[in-house]
Simulated scan of single mutants.
Amino acid sequence: MTPAVTAVSSNAVYSFAKPNRPSVTLLEGLGVEGDIHAGVTVKHRSRVARDPSQPNLRQVHLIPEELFAELGGRGYQVEPGNLGENVTTRGIDLYALPTGTLLRLGAEAVVEVTGLRNPCAQINGLGDGLMKQLVERAADGTVVRRGGIMGVVRTGGVVRPGDTIGVELPEGPHVPLAPV
């Protein structure tokens, strides 16, 4: 299966969910045009409160569609945009990508993967216990986060559902994703 975009979402106001759109425009160095989280510096409220001058490593939030099917099997109804993501994907194991991977979305846009999204308690607003489904402990005791991945826009462009996703791994030793 060729990796593809299944949905794109954005929101100009602070809200946990983001409405689906026919397309979004990624702006180099900023994020999703018109999205509340776009910018050179951090836009997430908790991070702004700590240090508003931090670089925004969370310009674009991507999440795999396969997660929604898994959660559905556990009794949770989650659809694209519900978890605040900008790009919903299919056919790619986002969590296995190393830091620095380049994702080519459609004909032009390129997003560099910066790390994992650290899910917050607001997720439980979609269903009691949903947060525990997205942050679990592996058999060895390590924390496994499945709230999606984050990236920065290296090359702008329009992204639409149905666009293919190309993957370019970084050179050298691969660094596993960590929360950003």
Rank of each mutant, 00 (worst) to 15 (best):
S10I: 08
N56K: 02
V13Y: 14
P176K: 00
A49W: 14
I63H: 07
N82C: 13
E70F: 10
T155G: 13
L30C: 08
V111Y: 01
L62Y: 02
V135Y: 03
E168I: 12
A96Y: 06
E136C: 13
A17R: 11
E112S: 08
G129A: 08
A138P: 03
N20H: 15
P3H: 09
R90G: 10
A69H: 15
A109N: 04
G125P: 09
E171F: 13
N11V: 08
L103W: 02
S9V: 02
G72T: 06
V8C: 01
R117P: 00
R74D: 12
T2E: 09
H44N: 09
V159E: 01
Y14D: 10
A121M: 12
E171A: 13
R50Q: 13
D163S: 06
G141D: 10
V111A: 00
D35S: 07
G162L: 06
P55E: 12
V113S: 01
C120F: 07
E65G: 12
E65R: 15
R90L: 14
T114F: 04
K43F: 10
G72K: 07
E136L: 14
M1I: 14
P176Q: 03
L67G: 04
L94F: 09
V78C: 05
M131P: 03
F68T: 06
E136I: 10
L116C: 05
E65M: 15
N86V: 03
Q77H: 15
D51N: 11
H174Y: 08
V60P: 00
Q122P: 11
V78P: 01
V143T: 10
G141V: 04
P170F: 05
P173F: 14
R104E: 14
V78M: 03
T155Q: 07
P80H: 10
A49P: 05
L71E: 02
E171T: 15
L97H: 03
F68P: 00
A178D: 11
